[in-house]
Design a protein around this nucleic acid. Structure first.
Length: 191
DNA sequence: TATTGGATCGCC
DNA sequence: GCGATCCAATAG
């Protein structure tokens, strides 16, 4: 693990009380730290109450998106992968940001071992991949963002370095431009 | 209770 | 391009 210095402030719940789109952009350049492993967020997507969102209808699974902010929302997909989100938008409207890719920083050997993948570019370049790499599972669902898994300040990303596209794996009539990633970063899931 | 389809990934 | 693999949501 690297030495923590004063620049690596730990983000509190309050940070996530704002809109998912704003949070998604603000998360680029931040670090996720868990299980003695860490990586810089290079790609994230916003979800609110749009038809493609779990919160389009509030169900027992998705109500965390409505009722909380600054909590981890972890769900299981395709029978074999987990995806990790952070809830946003206060407690009156639903919102969450899906973490889609990390640039691996520390605990790289452990992450390679969990993933059985040894190419750095391939280690955390997708929502399912990064959860497998860090060992994230449903036991973290509903925990606070400043609990055992944390988010730390790291690099400042300017607006000009942020690229925007439609969300991946979503079928919708008119794709919303709610995916954000760091320009020229090789660790994103795709260009 | 049964059915269907998915915010994925890796191999064919 | 497609199968793996199982849970969550909906319909009945």
């Amino acid at each position: 693990m690297p030495k923590k210095n004063s620049l690596m402030r730990q983000l509190n719940q309050q940070f996530f009380q704002k809109d998912a789109i704003e949070v998604a952009k603000a998360l680029l350049g931040k670090i996720i730290s868990y299980n003695s492993c860490s990586g810089m967020i290079v790609e994230a997507e916003a979800y609110k109450a749009d038809p493609a969102s779990h919160a389009y209808r509030i169900t027992p699974r998705s109500e965390i998106m409505l009722k909380t902010f600054g909590h981890w929302y972890v769900y299981f997909v395709y029978g074999m992968y987990y995806c990790v989100n952070i809830t946003t938008n206060g407690t009156k409207e639903p919102g969450a940001v899906l973490i889609r890719a990390l640039e691996p920083l520390t605990g790289i050997e452990a992450m390679k071992e969990r993933r059985k993948a040894y190419d750095l570019k391939n280690l955390c370049s997708g929502p399912g991949k990064l959860c497998a790499a860090l060992g994230i599972d449903k036991s973290l669902n509903g925990t606070k963002v400043d609990g055992s898994m944390k988010v730390l300040d790291y690099k400042s990303i300017s607006q000009g370095q942020i690229k925007v596209s439609h969300r991946i794996g979503i079928k919708e009539e008119k794709p919303l431009p709610w995916r954000f990633y760091i320009r020229d970063n090789i660790f994103v899931s795709r260009l």
